[in-house]
Amino acid sequence: MTAPLAPVTLHTDQVHARLPELTVIDVRTPGEYASGHLPGALNIPLDRVRRALPELRYVAGRGGVLFVCASGARSENAARLLAGQGVPAATLAGGTGAWAAAGQDLERPAACDTRAGWSMERQVRFTAGALVLVGIALGLLVHPAFQILSAGIAGGLVFSALTDTCGMAAVLGRLPYNRPRAADLDAVLAALRGR
């Protein structure tokens, strides 16, 4: 068995300089991936990375594997998984959010566009705000106990910020309009084998 390695964290300027030599794997859901991803990124959702391990091991020896997600939390988990198997892997600090904030382009292929038309972040902000307003309105008009809904959403947002995860995005990602198509893992694995 190969000795575990430590995953590497790269910043946007480092990734931009090395992008042609890296195999970029976006570990977000297909809906999130369709909303914008790094140029040339392939989509392997985090829960399917383990199945792609042989192919990822292969491409890691041919230039490196960079995992990317929205903020860097899921991609760090994927990089840790590979590094634990002795496969060198890196993650993009701050994810696609940092990439876009640095002025770098995101690909948004028309064939993968979600029917929702809104980014996942925008959907989360809208849903959270709407639920808070509903909780306040029902608390004022019907019964004060409905304000627990607003408190629950506020607590969820604080938890989301502290853990750098988003349960609401995970739930919204399962809605039909956020699922343009399932990730075609077999096609991605074939593309990795061809590199």
Rank of each mutant, 00 (worst) to 15 (best):
G86R: 09
V49P: 02
A110Q: 13
D13I: 01
T114W: 05
V8K: 11
Y33I: 00
A41L: 04
L81Y: 14
E107D: 14
V87C: 04
L22G: 03
V49Y: 03
L22Q: 02
A70G: 15
L46Y: 04
E107G: 03
A70W: 12
A102H: 11
D26Q: 07
V59R: 02
V27Q: 09
G86E: 08
I25W: 01
G31E: 02
P30F: 01
E21M: 12
H37M: 09
A98H: 08
E55H: 08
E76K: 13
H37V: 09
I25R: 02
L92Q: 11
G31S: 05
V65K: 00
R48S: 12
P20I: 05
P54R: 00
G86K: 09
L81T: 07
V68M: 06
R28S: 10
P39E: 07
L92P: 09
A89E: 06
A100K: 13
V49E: 07
A110D: 14
A98K: 07
P39F: 03
Q85S: 14
L46D: 00
L53C: 02
G40P: 05
V24K: 00
T114H: 05
P54Q: 03
N77R: 15
V87N: 05
V27N: 09
P109E: 15
C69G: 01
I25C: 01
G63C: 09
E21F: 07
R80I: 06
Y58M: 14
I44Y: 00
A78E: 03
C69R: 00
E76A: 15
A90Q: 08
S75N: 11
D47T: 12
V68T: 11
Y58K: 14
P45M: 06
S35F: 03
G95Y: 02
V87Q: 03
L42Y: 00
R50G: 12
P30S: 04
A89W: 08
V49D: 02
A17P: 06
G97K: 13
P45H: 06
L92C: 07
R57H: 13
G40E: 04
G97V: 13
T23D: 01
Q14S: 07
G95W: 04
A93G: 10
V49T: 10
G63P: 11
G86W: 10
G84P: 08
R28Y: 06
A101E: 14
H16K: 15
A73H: 15
T114N: 13
L42W: 00
N77Y: 07
